[in-house]
Design a protein around this nucleic acid. Structure first.
Length: 489
RNA sequence: CGGGGUGUGGCGCAGUUGGUAGCGUGCUUGACUGGGGGUCAAGAGGUCGCAAGUUCAAGUCUUGUCACUCCGACCA
């Protein structure tokens, strides 16, 4: 029919775009590269936000807010940071418009800013400029702050959720007295991200560090979580940076130690963005639409009444009200879709497309039998259950679904992770997609060369597991351990 | 920045050698229908991206211009 999605096998990226639009998550806006996040898509983001926000607060962080605009001069203070972001900055040069002789609205040239303002692509600079005022003594440390914000990176090619010119994210910025403490913080937060991805999003991730080529502009070490999408490409889902004293030195943020010595402050920053929604879609969804893990789904259960007239609907609603109360008492979010403007078949398809984990259908037949039809989105299986004790049954089902979604993604990743030891094997494997674990001599030149030849990059250098030495697949030079290569989004 | 493509009802598209704009879907109303995207009927909705030009006549031809989009280099 008209609402049919493009299938994944037919055209994966078309499938993704169709899905985002048809599931009512987002659409392109009048502004190039910037999307409108629609209510249903935004509800998913709010769900993620609320879980993450709690996790941040549980690890001792507080929220604050810093300006959207950053004076241009701030950027030039940290050399590698400017270099990394200079090519994608939106710049504000004027502060006023006027009407010209032709009656057109134009920029008022007399309203030129003394110093241009950069629309933040990330907030390290403005935040560290502020931290200078906040930090004098070791007693002021650590500073553990997070901000929920929008940022702008003027990307050349954009895709809904995966890469947009403006996106929503959170950025944590912390200041510490010692290197060890900052390192611990950076590692802790990538752990929080991994935990969130796996336990809530049902998304298995590899955890580790980035190679120097892939490191954040201005960081000493970048920790990341990396996920595998259904088309065999990797997606960076979150990063946490150990910034050393780079920003403290650039912005002159010093503190006095217990021993009354002046020292530079140690820093971290970490973030995840609305890109996570892209990850969620590409990891779990199918040709029928979105598949949402219950813990992230804005609506966990949808109830669809089957009725011919208003009397019948009223009868059904009496039973449904009881079910709703029972579900709500177990903190299950439920939607009763009693619209009489759409037919049941339409609703089934619509909620399936939107990935609601569990659907209950209840009609006259069920009223007679004291039953309800229960359909799960992940497997598309249906069964008819007695209404008795339905809350408990649904609660169990939701947790089964959460688990199943994760296990499915995990076995997909395992089936698509390969150890290779020769160059031929490597190039062949990379073409087919998946995570390819191979030895690398540790040099940027080799990594660059591999990227030029195959488009694959080092996604992550794993931190866990056994470290076994070997020989670089390209140069044959000694390698300390296998690293994970893939083509990435 | 380099190379392609597209601008026509809300959305997706067609429109022949120039002759006064049509299809699908969506929308509105009504009836029948209602356990997997219903059927029938009647309607509403378009300065054909913008600006010049050629012509008796331009969605169609010419020139200019703007926007979007796809493929590469860059990227969470």
């Amino acid at each position: 029919m008209a609402k049919q999605l493009t299938s994944r096998s037919e055209n994966y990226s078309q499938w993704y775009n169709d899905l985002v639009v048809k599931a009512d998550l987002a659409e392109n806006s009048a502004v190039r590269g910037s999307m409108v996040i629609k209510p249903y898509g935004y509800a998913i983001w709010e769900k993620m936000q609320s879980v993450l926000d709690t996790m941040f607060k549980d690890t001792g962080h507080q929220n604050a807010y810093f300006p959207l605009f950053i004076p241009k001069s701030f950027f030039s203070k940290e050399a590698s940071h400017v270099e990394g972001f200079a090519k994608e900055c939106a710049v504000v040069t004027h502060y006023r418009l006027k009407t010209n002789e032709q009656g057109e609205i134009v920029v008022d040239e007399n309203a030129k800013l003394e110093e241009e303002l950069i629309v933040r692509p990330t907030s390290e600079t403005i935040i560290w400029d502020t931290y200078r005022k906040w930090i004098q003594s070791y007693r002021d440390l650590p500073v553990l702050i997070n901000q929920w914000a929008n940022v702008v990176r003027w990307e050349m090619r954009t895709r809904l959720f995966l890469r947009t010119a403006e996106f929503l994210w959170q950025e944590g910025h912390t200041a510490h007295a010692t290197e060890a403490e900052a390192l611990e913080e950076a590692e802790k937060m990538v752990g929080v991200y991994a935990d969130f991805a796996e336990r809530y999003m049902g998304l298995p991730v590899l955890q580790g560090i980035k190679s120097p080529n892939e490191r954040f502009a201005g960081a000493i070490e970048t920790y990341c979580i990396e996920a595998l999408m259904q088309d065999g490409k990797a997606l960076q889902a979150g990063t946490s940076h150990f910034l050393g004293q780079n920003f403290a030195k650039a912005f002159d943020v010093k503190f006095v130690t217990r021993e009354n010595k002046q020292e530079y402050v140690w820093a971290t920053s970490w973030g995840v963005s609305t890109r996570l929604i892209g990850a969620l879609i590409m990891a779990h969804s199918d040709d029928n639409g979105l598949v949402l893990p219950p813990k992230i789904a804005p609506i966990q259960v949808v109830i669809i009444p089957i009725f011919k007239n208003e009397e019948q609907l009223d009868e059904i609603t009496k039973t449904v009200d009881v079910i709703i109360d029972e579900l709500k008492s177990k903190n299950i979010t439920v939607k009763y879709d009693n619209r009489d403007t759409q037919k049941p078949g339409y609703k089934f398809a619509e909620w399936e497309l939107k990935g609601v984990p569990v659907r209950l259908a209840i009609g006259p037949r069920d009223l007679e039998n004291g039953t309800v039809e229960v359909a799960r989105r992940d497997t598309l299986e249906k069964e008819t259950l007695q209404i008795t004790n339905i809350g408990k049954k649904i609660e169990n089902l939701l947790s089964q679904i959460q688990d199943n979604i994760y296990q499915k993604a995990l076995s997909f990743r395992e089936d698509n992770t390969f150890n290779v030891d020769t160059w031929d094997e490597f190039t062949d494997r990379i073409k087919k997609g998946g995570f390819v674990r191979a030895h690398w001599d540790g040099t940027s030149e080799t990594e660059k060369l591999i990227k030029d030849k195959t488009k694959a990059t080092i996604r992550v250098i794993p931190m866990d597991g056994k470290i076994v030495a070997g020989k670089c697949i390209l140069t044959g030079e000694p390698s300390k351990q296998r690293v994970v290569f893939a083509k990435a989004y």
